[in-house]
């Protein structure tokens, strides 16, 4: 079996929404498009997105960190959305495990979106069909594109290089290596859906800040650091990020 999926490194993600924006830009003109918008220039703009980023505060001050969670279809191995589809419009491809919607068969009953625990399907009011991430199926096999660009739009655009794409069932792929090295995990494994997309957790980071070096840099930059450094050398040299 082959299972194409995304691996997202939450440690590198800076929450810039570039993946979401580029996803929308590619897919609205790609084979899965258009990703229609309601009232795009009006008071309450709203539209179909395959990829959305939420931001959370994890922990309590001062042991606190910000986590950006980009979330698109997980291409579950045991996809609950496919099971409930009454027409068979939602299907999982045998050859690469991508979950797709056949727009010609979709009646727009929204039942698949109820069955998805991740909320990764969005209804297109204008076309009356359910839309979702295709893992850029029109890019990854597209021979008109140069070989290095045959990746999902979100992966290519990520400025922090926080996303990897590949076959998670193949141990040598980039995605599998990321999962193995970065201790990749799945969101809500309890859902029973067996999602394919993996996330790499935030890592502990310790940066040693030497007071002497800091003062030297300040001197070079003509900053009077004696007015800024009010703490003692111990607390300056310790820590930055928390577990």
């Amino acid at each position: 079996m082959s299972q194409k999926a995304l691996v997202i490194d939450l440690h590198k993600c800076v929450g810039c929404h570039a993946c979401a924006a580029n996803c929308k830009a590619w897919n609205t003109q790609g084979e899965a498009g258009p990703l229609t918008d309601t009232n795009p220039y009006g008071k309450d703009p709203e539209g179909v997105w395959f990829n959305r980023v939420q931001t959370y505060e994890v922990g309590k001050f001062p042991d606190v960190e910000v986590v950006h969670l980009p979330k698109s279809c997980m291409h579950c191995k045991n996809a609950p959305c496919v099971e409930v589809c009454p027409t068979g419009a939602s299907y999982k491809r045998m050859e690469d495990g991508i979950v797709l919607v056949n727009y010609d068969d979709c009646i727009g009953c929204k039942y698949c979106s109820w069955a998805c625990p991740y909320g990764c399907r969005e209804f297109d009011e204008f076309e009356g069909v359910m839309k979702k991430c295709t893992l850029c199926v029109d890019r990854i096999y597209n021979e008109a594109l140069p070989e290095e660009e045959r990746k999902p739009a979100c992966v290519i655009t990520c400025p922090a290089k926080a996303r990897a794409f590949g076959d998670i069932d193949e141990p040598d792929s980039e995605a599998s290596r990321w999962i193995a090295e970065g201790k990749g995990y799945k969101l809500m494994p309890e859902s029973g859906a067996d999602p394919s997309n993996h996330y790499l957790p935030k890592r502990k980071v310790k940066i040693h800040v030497d007071k002497e070096a800091l003062l030297k840099i300040a001197q070079l930059a003509h900053i009077d650091m004696t007015r800024h450094i009010i703490c003692d050398s111990d607390s300056v040299s310790e820590d930055v990020a928390q577990p």
Binding site: W49, Q54, V64, P201
Partner: peptide
């Protein structure tokens, strides 16, 4: 299944800061 499972983070204090969209959308309306 709680927010800890949803994010895969074992921390009792998890707070939503930003839904990523300025207005309501399918996931917050349906």
């Amino acid at each position: 299944i709680g927010i800890k499972n949803a994010l895969g983070m074992n921390n009792p204090h998890i707070r939503l800061m930003d839904t990523g969209a300025a207005y309501a959308h399918y996931n917050t309306k349906e």
